[in-house]
Design a protein around this nucleic acid. Sequence first.
DNA 1: TCAATAGTGTCTTTGAGACACTATCCG
DNA 2: CGGATAGTGTCTCAAAGACACTATTGA
Lengths: 243, 243
Amino acid sequence: MIEQTAQNAEPLSLERSQHAPGPTVGVSVVIFSIQPGPQRQQLSVLLVRRNKPPYENQWAMPGGWVRTGEGLEAAAQRHLHTKAGLTSTYLEQLYTFGRPDRDPREHRIAVAYYALVSSAAAQLPEAKADREARWFPADCVPKPLAFDHDEILSYALWRLRNKVSYAYVAYQLLPPTFTLAELRKVYEVILDHPLDPTNFRRKVEASGTIIPTGKRVEGGAHRPPQLYRCQLTPEQLLTGPPS
Amino acid sequence: MIEQTAQNAEPLSLERSQHAPGPTVGVSVVIFSIQPGPQRQQLSVLLVRRNKPPYENQWAMPGGWVRTGEGLEAAAQRHLHTKAGLTSTYLEQLYTFGRPDRDPREHRIAVAYYALVSSAAAQLPEAKADREARWFPADCVPKPLAFDHDEILSYALWRLRNKVSYAYVAYQLLPPTFTLAELRKVYEVILDHPLDPTNFRRKVEASGTIIPTGKRVEGGAHRPPQLYRCQLTPEQLLTGPPS
DNA sequence: TCAATAGTGTCTTTGAGACACTATCCG
DNA sequence: CGGATAGTGTCTCAAAGACACTATTGA
């Protein structure tokens, strides 16, 4: 913890407030979405281009300071919104990166979050699109990223791939109603391998997390699939971190 | 992250360095060990007693400042050593707690770690034992703990119970050689329910993480069990966090 | 009718758990 | 020998996966 437990009472509080302010604190947000790629849907990450040193012109995950009195998640949401113009329904703390040399200017720790954004909500503001902010396929980002962001990204990918296989997070990447094929596609894109439609259907139906809307998709050239929506019980929403 | 990406360039860096220093940073360490209890072995947590406000005389997890230029894990190790007099073979980042009001004095974030200490290495220095630092059964700590440490502890417990069921971390709580019954006991104590000795043996043997030493325990009143030691491959050591 | 996707039924394999059984030690 | 713990063999059951099959649409 943070407070001293006075045995070994080095005069740390004094020392600290006057001479050693300690590391500063920021947040970084890895923003995931499914975006259309050259061939097919791809798991993508939103990056912003830095326009000042250090790492000028390199791409980085959006982020920034945490203000005094501001919660960590609130700070992440704020930067998500101001830097990328997006709002996310799902935000989860990833890991805190604290290597003293991760920022050449000073010792700053970064509390990293990752966010899931549905394709529908993933439109970038015109003003920023392409020049200042862009979606990149998650396995094909312009390396190296600024700071230690390559490391942050690869950990986020690892975590998302793990999480998707035991928690109901994939829904966050889809619009409110979706077909089973679309849901399966999300899993396939994240896990990067095909899934058996039969068994996938059985498993998802058995989980009780989707309910049929009764409606069907119209206008396709084939048999129209049913539309489902997601309904998670409080337990299924439990993501793990403290309540 | 931490650096601004100059679009939306509010003059944050200036503001920050002169007026708003942002939250300060500390670490907290939840230290686990298996300790003998009234009836049997128990999963225990090391707590230290605070001897100054705030929360004077209440129990808390050991921890303290992160120094400028010091890595987070190094800070955790340092406080583990100076506050509790222990050394740990296993230290893993848990979560970062940042509620602005978690410390009544100022906005401080706590990067929480948890440590596993073998029973052999869990002896507290005489000077501290009982008065300043003590092992408590993990499900029976003196509530409320200082700050938000109840929340940190319950999350650490949740995480340890999860982790033990899919990763090879239990060995960290045992001496270098151990019997299968001892290893099983560790699992039973953490998971808080009995395990079938037969199936436990099969599963552990199949995992290939233990190798028989050929030696046996002597002096028991019954058939002497074999001693094993643990050998983890690099893959099995992978705990998840970034390499 | 055909191509293509939606959706069903069923077999096999695998791993977890239950549990009866044998082995070996001490006193 | 008897009590206790170490260690083995085998059955059952449930979930995961493979895959052949039927259903329904537009063109």
